[in-house]
Computed example of a mutant assay.
Amino acid sequence: MKFGWNLGNTLDAQCIGTLNYSKDQTASETCWGNPKTTEDMFKVMIDNQFNVFRIPTTWSGHFADEDGHKIDEKWMKRVHEVVDYAYNNGAFVILNIHHETWNHAFSETLETAKVILADIWNQIAEEFKDYNERLIFEGLNEPRKNDTPVEWNGGDKEGWDAVNAMNEVFLKTIRASGGNNPKRHLMIPPYAAATQENSFKNFKYPGGDDKLIVSVHNYAPYNFALNNGDGAVETFDAQGKKDLDWSISLIKKTFTDKGIPVIMGEYGAMNRDNTEERAKWAEYYMEKVTAIGVPQVWWDNGIFEGTGERFGLLDRKNLKIVYPSIVAALQKGRGLEVEVKHAAEAVAEGCWATELGFECCSEGNTRVVATDENGKWGVENGNWCGIP
Rank of each mutant, 00 (worst) to 15 (best):
N153L: 04
P182N: 12
H342P: 11
I16D: 12
Y191L: 10
V340Q: 06
D257T: 08
A232D: 13
L11W: 00
G33H: 05
A125S: 15
A86W: 00
G375N: 07
N96Y: 04
G17E: 14
Y205A: 08
H342I: 00
Q239F: 06
G179P: 11
G61D: 04
N103V: 07
R310V: 04
V83C: 14
P206S: 06
I55Y: 06
I46V: 09
Q49N: 15
T195R: 06
D84H: 10
Y205F: 10
E277I: 02
K23P: 08
V369L: 12
K43W: 05
E108A: 14
F128Q: 03
N365G: 08
V82E: 10
R78M: 07
L226R: 10
T307G: 12
D273G: 12
I387P: 02
S325Q: 11
L212I: 07
H342T: 05
N51P: 06
F137L: 13
A162C: 14
A220P: 12
P189G: 01
Y323F: 14
V52E: 11
V369M: 10
L11D: 00
M286R: 08
L319E: 12
K114A: 04
D65Q: 13
G68L: 04
V115L: 11
K280F: 08
N198C: 06
N6H: 02
G357V: 01
A220R: 12
H98L: 06
R54P: 05
I55D: 13
E359N: 15
I174T: 07
L186G: 09
K211T: 14
L140H: 06
D119F: 00
Y191S: 13
F106H: 07
W384L: 14
E81A: 06
P261R: 03
D237M: 02
P221K: 01
F200H: 01
G207T: 13
P324W: 02
G265A: 03
E158W: 04
I326N: 02
I292K: 03
H80E: 14
G179S: 11
E234S: 15
T30R: 00
Y323I: 09
P261F: 00
I120Y: 08
D237L: 01
N164E: 12
G8N: 06
H69N: 15
N132P: 09
Q196T: 08
K74E: 12
A353P: 08
K252I: 04
I136R: 00
S325G: 15
L171R: 10
N20L: 05
D24R: 03
W152V: 01
A348H: 15
G265P: 06
F137C: 09
T26N: 15
K172A: 13
D273M: 12
F203S: 02
T109H: 04
N146E: 13
D40Y: 08
W32G: 07
S325W: 11
G357Y: 02
T366V: 11
H62K: 13
K317N: 15
F304G: 13
C385I: 04
S107A: 14
D372N: 09
I248N: 02
V262R: 00
Y21E: 09
K280M: 10
L319S: 11
G335H: 04
D161R: 01
V369R: 01
Y191F: 12
I71A: 08
M166G: 00
K280S: 14
R78E: 11
